[in-house]
Computed example of a mutant assay.
Amino acid sequence: MVIVDHSVGCSVHDYGNHPCLHLSKKTTAKRMRKKDPSTREIIPLKHFQLFRTDFMIQSMMLCMTTHQDWLYNALRPDAYLILWFNNESSRIMVDFEEVSITRDTILFIRKDRVHILMDDRYDGITISFTENFFCKSAEDAVFLNNHILFTDSHQPRYIKVEEEDRVLRLLATLLMEENATTAPSETVNRNLIQHFMIAAARKLEPAEIPVSVDRDRSYVTAFQQLLAHDFRSVKMVNTYATALHITEKRLNAATTHITGKSPKQLIDEKIMLEARRMLTHTSQTTSEIAFELGFFEVSNFIKYFRKHEGITPAIYRKASVSKA
């Protein structure tokens, strides 16, 4: 399903005079009132209704005016996000990493990444799409799952668009124009998104871009997909290796080559990230969190958490609340 907002109020200007997409005055909304920190000590994880669509492109201003829940709440959408900011400066938190945004910064957020918009107002364009929208073939799935901008890395990816980056600006314009029609083409949108991702990846440092999708990278991608689905119940490296029809030693060689980390380290990172998310963004008790993460004895979870974080879950939660 494709969702298009025809009241988006975006005007596309000639690139010889206007180097970026500008929002017209129609989208200007009242400045939203910042919530009292005491009311957001525990920010609930929620799947934001707006992103429960296969594809969407909309102005940030209109999006936040219509759906104010997006501000100050922790959001984990089942979609990939591309956020092109027109603010002079703003902030966004992506899984405990604060990103400082300036004008013409494009931020790429992989699905299931928890993020929080930390300011009152954002200008720019929001694009979201699901795997169901993008992956119409095995090749599409390989492209998306291995794309450097949407890797399963804890560090968010973003690029700065310069004045001379005409290709990215043109592709963004074409996306806006296509979705200003009464019957936008899903195929055209998908192709434009793919070319946009290719052009954006060229903005990264050469060392950041993988030379090819080799066998090791394929194993790591498959392992990360299994891990994302099963980390709560499966914590043994051998179980994942068996599912991939390779030995534990071969999986270790692949993850070490691609990520510099062992499979066990990646499993621990995934569990700890989810534990920190739940302690920070939910009101679930330590016992409930332990059980949800596959620890049947809360004492084992507390011991595990302290081993990796250096403090107990209770102390971590108290510290995260005070920061909010």
Rank of each mutant, 00 (worst) to 15 (best):
I3K: 14
H13V: 09
Y15Q: 14
G16F: 05
N17C: 00
N17M: 10
C20V: 13
L21P: 03
K26V: 12
T28F: 12
K30V: 13
R31M: 11
D36K: 06
D36M: 00
I43G: 05
F48L: 06
F51P: 03
T53Q: 09
D54I: 06
F55W: 06
F55S: 07
I57T: 11
Q58G: 09
Q58R: 09
S59R: 03
M61W: 02
M61C: 09
T66A: 12
L71P: 05
D78R: 02
Y80I: 06
Y80T: 06
Y80R: 00
L81M: 13
I82E: 02
F85Y: 15
N87F: 03
N87S: 06
E88H: 13
S89A: 12
S90G: 15
R91F: 11
R91D: 03
R91T: 10
I92L: 14
S100Y: 06
I101R: 03
I101V: 15
R103F: 07
L107Y: 05
L107R: 06
F108T: 07
R110M: 07
R110I: 04
V114Y: 00
M118R: 10
D123P: 01
D123L: 06
I125C: 10
I127C: 07
S128L: 08
S128N: 12
F133C: 07
A138I: 04
A138V: 01
A141R: 14
F143D: 05
L144A: 00
N145M: 08
H147L: 04
F150G: 03
T151A: 14
T151L: 09
S153D: 11
H154K: 10
H154P: 06
E164C: 05
E164R: 14
R169E: 12
L171E: 00
L175M: 15
M176W: 15
M176E: 08
T181Q: 13
V188M: 10
V188S: 11
N191F: 06
I198R: 12
A199N: 04
E205L: 13
E205S: 14
P206V: 08
A207R: 15
E208I: 08
P210N: 14
V211S: 10
Q224D: 02
L227G: 03
D230R: 10
M236T: 01
N238V: 12
E248V: 09
E248R: 12
T256C: 07
D268K: 00
E269A: 15
E274Y: 08
M278Q: 12
M278W: 09
T280H: 02
S283W: 05
Q284C: 03
T285W: 07
T285K: 05
E292W: 02
V298T: 15
Y304H: 11
F305R: 00
F305G: 04
R306I: 01
A314Y: 04
A314Q: 11
I315N: 06
S320A: 15
A324M: 11
